[in-house]
């Protein structure tokens, strides 16, 4: 992980286009790269959430918290009505 840049847990790519693709291009495809992919074995003494917060977030460890939002919804129409 590049420590110079803030951690981004969503990556994107632009799918290849062929001249006769029937659907209009989706633009970018998104995929998730949560923080655990980059940590290796968890080092000791990492910052923790409070117990109440941890129960809500699903993890005690701040390093693993990864909020997910539909990446296609931003500025666009939801894919499901």
């Amino acid at each position: 992980m590049n420590s110079q840049q803030p951690f981004q847990s969503v990556r994107t790519y632009i799918p290849p286009r062929s001249p006769f693709d029937p659907c209009p291009p989706i633009g970018r495809k998104f995929y998730s790269t949560p923080p655990h992919l980059f940590l290796g074995v968890q080092p000791p003494d990492l910052p923790q959430f409070s117990p109440a917060e941890a129960l809500r977030k699903g993890t005690l460890w701040k390093v693993f918290a990864d909020y997910y939002e539909n990446p296609y919804r931003k500025g666009g129409k939801p894919r499901h009505g």
Binding site: G58, T59, F64, A65, D66, N70, R73, H80
Partner: peptide, 23 residues
Amino acid sequence: IIDMSDDPDLNDSLRFLREREIV
């Protein structure tokens, strides 16, 4: 499923479950 769902309360529970998969 979260992408397909418009139910904020349900998505809240689904986000918890997704986080558990990460852990």
